[in-house]
């Protein structure tokens, strides 16, 4: 049995009938067609599926789409301006070479945005604690920490 949901994603209104067991990440990628958020571990450990739901970073692999009925979601696709100007956090990841393969990057950027929103001048320890729920298998994290610090200094 399906249920009707209606929600806002990156400023755009969406309405669909979905099965209650459909995970939010599958909804975003396969129904809404927004493939920027990645499905990594499927077990709430890696954070690649992180999106913002009503201003809070959450793991969209550990939430059913029906729970997001009425919510306002921002995914990685919604960070840059319509003209293509990158969000300061995206800019910092680019400038600091904070990615190699890029698979974890959407989630890293979404959680980093939350870290800086809640703590505008985080220490490196606070940044690392904030990134606790996101795994990167390429970079060794140092450049990601540099990017978050740089973005915070730039007032991201």
């Amino acid at each position: 049995m399906t249920r009707a949901i209606s929600l806002t994603i990156n400023g755009k209104h969406y309405e669909h009938d979905v099965e209650p067991r459909l995970l939010l990440i599958h909804y975003l990628r396969e129904v809404a067609g927004l493939t920027g958020s990645h499905m990594g571990c499927e077990t709430s450990l890696c954070g690649a599926c992180t999106v913002e739901l009503d201003g809070k970073a959450i793991k969209s692999c550990t939430m059913f789409a029906v729970q997001a009925n009425g919510a306002n979601i921002v995914t990685i696709e919604g960070l840059a301006s319509p003209e293509g100007k990158l969000h300061p956090m995206q800019e910092a990841f680019w400038n600091e070479h904070a990615l190699q393969c890029g698979f974890c990057t959407p989630g890293m950027i979404m959680v980093s945005k939350q870290i800086v929103e809640r703590n505008p001048s985080p220490t490196d320890t606070e940044i690392r604690e904030g990134l606790d729920g996101n795994i990167c298998r390429c970079t060794g994290y140092q450049h990601i920490v540099n990017a978050v610090r740089t973005a915070a200094k730039a007032g991201a």
Partner: peptide, 9 residues
Amino acid sequence: IGDIQVRNM
């Protein structure tokens, strides 16, 4: 507890 995302939910 957990991480930022887990504590948010």
